[in-house]
């Protein structure tokens, strides 16, 4: 399964490092990253492959949102098809 991870919040040092090491620790492969900072507002989207994920999806989502809370960010993981179906014909 391929999913999009979105990270939104105030910019700070180490966002990408923290999120990507959490993903690496859980065997999630990052396929693409896109990030921008606008008025100190950080948004990052990652396309990831969950093929080798060793824990249940729910647990990974919990870990991500926990990490988000620690850093004052919103981190979400959603199957890529929701974006594909809404924005591509």
């Amino acid at each position: 399964m391929r999913a999009i991870i979105s990270v939104i919040g105030v910019d700070q040092i180490g966002i990408i490092a923290e999120v990507s090491s959490l993903l690496a620790a859980n065997k999630v492969n990052i396929l693409d990253i896109n990030q921008t900072v606008l008025d100190e507002y950080f948004t990052m989207t990652m396309l990831v492959d969950l093929e080798k994920l060793e824990i249940p999806l729910e647990e990974l989502k919990d870990k991500l949102s926990q990490k988000g809370e620690e850093m004052g960010l919103s981190i979400k993981l959603q199957h890529e098809d929701i974006f594909r179906s809404m924005h591509r014909i």
């Binding site: 693409d32 896109n34 989207t45 809404m86 924005h87």
Partner: peptide
Amino acid sequence: MINNYEIMETIR
């Protein structure tokens, strides 16, 4: 890949 703007629109 779906672009950032589209992803943010869906999330919003």
